[in-house]
Simulated scan of single mutants.
Amino acid sequence: MTEETRRKAALVGAFDRGAPTYDRLGVDFFGPPGTELVRRAGVRTGQRVVDVGCGRGAVLVPAARAVGVTGRVVGIDLAPTMVELTRAEVRAAGLSQVEVELGDAESPLLPAGEFDAVLGGFVVFLLPDPAAALRGYRRLLCRGGRIGITTFANQDPRFTEAMRRLAGHLPADRRQWPTSKQDALYATADLTAALLWEAGYRDVDVTEASFQSRFRDVEHWLAWVWSHGARSLLEQIPAQRLPVALAEVTPVVEGARSVDGDLLFTTTVRFAVAASPG
């Protein structure tokens, strides 16, 4: 098993273990950008959409609402529990136009030329070879189809500092988290646009917007961290060091306390939308 394969499997496992609470803790973090991505991608009634790395439906559900009952939305995720829970929820909601399947966002095994849009909310930058994935998505799109992805432009500085302090408690050979060799691909809006141009897309539009997330207290924030990809960091901290690590980040997180008593974090999201020439 290569290092890239090992890291991918570990990340999928972390998401799978976090699936029951992923985006289900009363925190507006994934939902608002997901709805905005659907809007900016211009998804319309009757269209066919793929949501790669669909998680618990932050993009999937607003896409289903946008296409209506005459459209079709396929969500894929590599974490089996994510798929199971999301599939059950869309069925309970009566969204008959939605299918949720186990699948790899890096190379979706879906029919060529069948879709009007490929959407990916906070997923492409997690892939070992995002440039290859973006090129591959063009195969799925019909002529003039559109791609829409989100990445992080800026995390709240208190979140970044908290993650840095937590990473300081990792075993010595893993203390580079959360940086990766792919980070440079998304460092600026221009680089994100270039990634899409080089993958063969045209009419590339990259914009940014900020969103606020509220937490009741440090415990609420920590439960949220355990629920998503950052879980992979917490799981690598030796058990005997975890209480010390959490105590160290508490004052950083408390620094986000707003005048109304909640902890308030601001995240700037980058939206990249482009067209496939066919």
Results as ranks from 00 to 15, higher is better:
residue 4 E to D: 12
residue 16 D to M: 05
residue 17 R to S: 06
residue 18 G to M: 00
residue 22 Y to V: 03
residue 23 D to C: 04
residue 26 G to M: 00
residue 26 G to C: 01
residue 27 V to I: 12
residue 28 D to C: 04
residue 28 D to A: 14
residue 28 D to P: 14
residue 37 L to I: 03
residue 38 V to K: 00
residue 48 R to N: 03
residue 48 R to T: 09
residue 50 V to W: 11
residue 51 D to I: 10
residue 52 V to T: 10
residue 54 C to K: 03
residue 58 A to S: 15
residue 63 A to R: 03
residue 66 A to S: 06
residue 67 V to L: 11
residue 67 V to D: 09
residue 69 V to K: 14
residue 71 G to E: 02
residue 73 V to P: 03
residue 73 V to T: 11
residue 75 G to F: 06
residue 79 A to I: 07
residue 80 P to A: 08
residue 81 T to E: 15
residue 88 A to K: 14
residue 89 E to V: 10
residue 90 V to R: 10
residue 96 S to H: 12
residue 103 G to A: 03
residue 103 G to V: 04
residue 106 E to I: 00
residue 107 S to K: 14
residue 107 S to G: 12
residue 110 L to I: 05
residue 126 L to W: 15
residue 127 L to M: 02
residue 129 D to L: 04
residue 130 P to C: 05
residue 131 A to E: 04
residue 141 L to F: 12
residue 141 L to N: 08
residue 146 R to Y: 03
residue 148 G to L: 05
residue 150 T to M: 03
residue 151 T to Y: 02
residue 151 T to N: 13
residue 152 F to I: 15
residue 154 N to H: 15
residue 155 Q to H: 14
residue 157 P to Q: 02
residue 157 P to A: 06
residue 158 R to L: 15
residue 160 T to P: 04
residue 162 A to Q: 05
residue 165 R to S: 04
residue 166 L to K: 09
residue 168 G to D: 10
residue 173 D to Y: 09
residue 174 R to W: 02
residue 179 T to G: 14
residue 180 S to C: 09
residue 181 K to D: 15
residue 182 Q to P: 06
residue 184 A to M: 07
residue 190 D to L: 03
residue 198 E to M: 12
residue 198 E to Y: 12
residue 202 R to C: 14
residue 203 D to Q: 13
residue 216 R to A: 15
residue 217 D to G: 06
residue 220 H to N: 01
residue 225 V to W: 11
residue 226 W to Y: 12
residue 226 W to P: 00
residue 239 A to H: 05
residue 241 R to Y: 05
residue 241 R to E: 15
residue 242 L to Y: 07
residue 243 P to M: 06
residue 247 A to W: 00
residue 253 V to D: 02
residue 253 V to I: 14
residue 253 V to P: 02
residue 255 G to C: 01
residue 256 A to S: 14
residue 262 D to C: 03
residue 263 L to T: 11
residue 272 A to K: 02
residue 277 P to A: 07
residue 278 G to V: 14
